[in-house]
Each structure stands twice: as structure tokens, then as C-alpha cells.
Amino acid sequence: MFEAKISQGSVLKKLVEALKELVTEGNIDVSPSGMSLQAMDSSHVCLVSLVLRDDGFDHFRCDRNMPMGIHFANFSKILKCAGNDDAITLKAEDNADQLTLMFESSNQDRISDFDLKLMSIESEHLGIPDQDYSAEIKMPASEYQRIVRDLTSIGDTVLISATKEGIKFSTSGDVGTANVTLRHNTTSEKQEEHTIIDLKEPVALTFALRYLKNFSNATALAPQVKLSLTKDLPIVVEYQVGELGNIRFYLAPKIDD
């Protein structure tokens, strides 16, 4: 059987909110080492990878590896019934066709349980190699959200260029053009306000803004976001989920025909 308890249930709520617009359904794979998900959007140009480690949970037990086929809009409907301060326990028997979610209020005076129907989903796993990137940029997650939101109102695609001067986001559209440049900045006493640019070589890539904006649905999960760029490879937009794990979004660059 599988059983996992997380006292900070709001994290699970935020994770599903971050995913559900991008991927309709997918297999959450559970194993003794934790929970993971790899899913592509319907057009297969972006991929989300979620890893939640067993030791990040208050309690975690998984006797047998199994995929749990989840419809994320339905998962979201049930998680919306959990209070923000509730502890959430997930439970499933081996080869079950449902996932039980139990919500406990912080003073344990309210307990509710819901069953989510599981689906049988054929999915393929892609091997994503660990690699060095030409540029890695850490910035406040709220800053990333603001940039992609602002630029989406001007254009459809963004050119992201990382140089020793900083990281520049450029777009253009019917109303005109926009450029936002962030410089390396570690002057704040608060680490989450830092912008850290780790540049091995200059790189410039173009991406569809609507996906980058979609990734910012994960903003509530982490104070910082990391962007990783290498020529001709997908950008990685990564949010650390506390001690629990991380969520990474991959988006293919636009290529001139």
C-alpha cells in the first residue's frame, strides 16, 4: 500500500495549481523513495517534472512502485476542499482505482476524506540528463512572474539573452517593443531578493511567452526561481519546494526555419 502525510497541505494544493493548466492528466509514480511525475503538455513542446522525496513527508510508506493516473482538474477540485492549514494524507491500496485524501484541520477538530478516481494512463518517460548549462540565473520568483506577465501583454515570444551585463528579456508586438534587463545583485540582506547570474558563456534563445507565463503559476511555491539556458536546448524553469523536492518546467526554444 501507499500512504503519505504532509502536515503543510497547502504545498500540495499549490503544486496542483501550478500544474493543472499545463497538463490535463498524468501518472504520479510512487515508490519507496517518494513521488514523481513527468508529463508533457498536449502539444509536447513543454514538459513538467516533479520530484517529492519520501523524507520530505511527515510520514511516507510505499510497499510497491505504482503509477497513479491523475486527472489534475479533478485532483484540484478535491484539494480545494482542504483548508490551507490542513494536514493532508494520501492513501491507496496496491493497484487501486482510487486515491483517498484525508484532510485534518490543525487543531484536529475537523476531519474529512475524499476519494479521487484514478485513471489508466499510457505514458512514456523521457530520460533527462543532468548537464551543465551555459547560463544559470536565480531570481525572485515574483520578479520572474512580473517579467513574463508584463511581456505577454506586448508580444508572443521573448528573446532571453544572458551576457556578462545581465539577463535581458526582449519582445515586440503590435503595440511596440519591450526590454527588461536584470543585473547580478546580491546587495539585499534577504537572500530571496538576490539575482544571481552564473554565466559560463553568453547564450540567447527565443521562447513562446504563454508557456513561460504558465510556469509562473508555481510562484507561490518558492521565493526564488532558477532559469537554466544552453544553446538549442530547452530552458529549465525550476522551483524548489522547500525540503520536499522540486518542480521543473522544460520548454523547447523557437527555431527559425
Binding site: 509536447h44 518517460h125 523521457l126 533527462i128 540528463p129 515570444t157 527565443t206 522544460y250 523547447a252 526555419d257
Partner: peptide, 14 residues
């Protein structure tokens, strides 16, 4: 026009 490749063209299927 700019195109976009599928994720499967960057990462091999396991």
C-alpha cells in the same frame, strides 16, 4: 516563421 520541436526530439524515451 519560427517552429518548435517536440520534447521527444531533445530527450530520449526511456
Amino acid at each position: 516563421a519560427a517552429g518548435q520541436k517536440s520534447m521527444t526530439s531533445f530527450f530520449a524515451k526511456k
